[in-house]
Write a protein that binds this DNA or RNA. Structure first.
Lengths: 179, 179
DNA sequence: AAGCTTGTTCATTTTTTTCTAAACAGGCTA
DNA sequence: TAGCCTGTTTAGAAAAAAATGAACAAGCTT
């Protein structure tokens, strides 16, 4: 069964600014989109849900509101928010006279993409750089490789190095273009 | 413990063109790189291993060779190769007088990226297109939303639509630039 | 046709990831 | 300081993903 995000009938009283039924219906649609995006990006479903509920709220949400609207545990929300903050996908907003954190979305695509590059792609490219240097070494001095093999393997190392260079040059440009 | 890709001491006899020790050492390094890339892309480790062993082999490999060198089950290799073929990341090479399939890598970055876009990104963008159209509808006729809320929500829908459009325009360009 | 070889399928097991719930920390209030 | 609020940490449960292995197809060979 598809997970439902509709308002529970027993709304807690005294909370300011309860979302209307129609707003919740709209939020549910937004959330579906982000859950699907989360799947594409290979991140946990709950992270998609959390970003979705924040993105689709007309005002910053508290931790507690996120927990209640998504029926997630505090633990999941805490972890999810940490990941989203580290990516720069959500920010905390200051509300005078309120001790709680309020969360609002980063809505600039270029900033989101920049966060993904920084946290996920670049570390891998860096690591690959070192590894490739070592493989190149081994392939170049080529102890025990017959000549034909060595030729193909050197070409493959060169290929991989060209991939890495292209990526390292090109990816930073992406975020520029998305301005 | 890190998985090892070194040659088992009991090499099966009679197989043509056994890789040398130094070749296997090099292959192991390549494979590590692709396993790490698989993690970044959110695909199973075994798929990274399979592409890695094919990419780093100086000649096309048979199904059986892949199974043996990676210590994977036939099932995993069969499924992994199917996924890689669907992405266009490996091709079968014809060898006259041999019934077996021989697998060789696609080594052009742009083709690999094009495959990823086609199989993973575009379907999501298409789906989002439909979903966004429906949300726009709901937000626009706005039954039950107070005016302030409706304003913010409309702006958010517009944001998402602009993301989608930018992506749909930009991503196909990526593969061009990677030529 | 019987018996190989090559590879696929899919139910089950194993492993990994994700989520939860309960304990806890730190700060505010009374 | 005791009691409350807000959020974090983490051991373990639950769920999801991946790998296995055994049965199966399809095509040769003899």
């Amino acid at each position: 069964m598809a997970k439902s995000y509709s308002k529970p009938s027993t709304a807690s009283p005294g909370v300011i600014n309860e979302p209307s039924e129609s707003q919740l219906a709209i939020q549910a649609q937004f959330i579906e989109i982000f859950v699907s995006a989360a799947a594409v990006l290979g991140v946990p479903r709950s992270i998609g849900e959390i970003y979705g509920v924040i993105f689709s709220a007309p005002r910053p949400l508290t931790f507690q509101e996120i927990v209640e609207r998504l029926n997630l545990s505090k633990g999941s929300v805490s972890q999810g928010l940490r990941a989203l903050r580290s990516l720069g996908a959500v920010r905390t907003a200051y509300v005078p006279g309120d001790r709680r954190d309020y969360f609002e979305p980063e809505t600039e695509l270029r900033n989101l993409v920049a966060g993904l590059l920084r946290d996920r792609i670049n570390p891998h490219l860096e690591q690959a750089k070192g590894r490739l240097a070592r493989v190149r070494q081994q392939v170049t001095d080529g102890g025990g490789l017959n000549t034909d093999e060595a030729l193909v393997l050197r070409a493959r190392v060169a290929k991989l190095e060209s991939w890495r260079k292209k990526s390292a040059l090109f990816l930073p440009l992406v975020t520029k273009v998305l301005g």
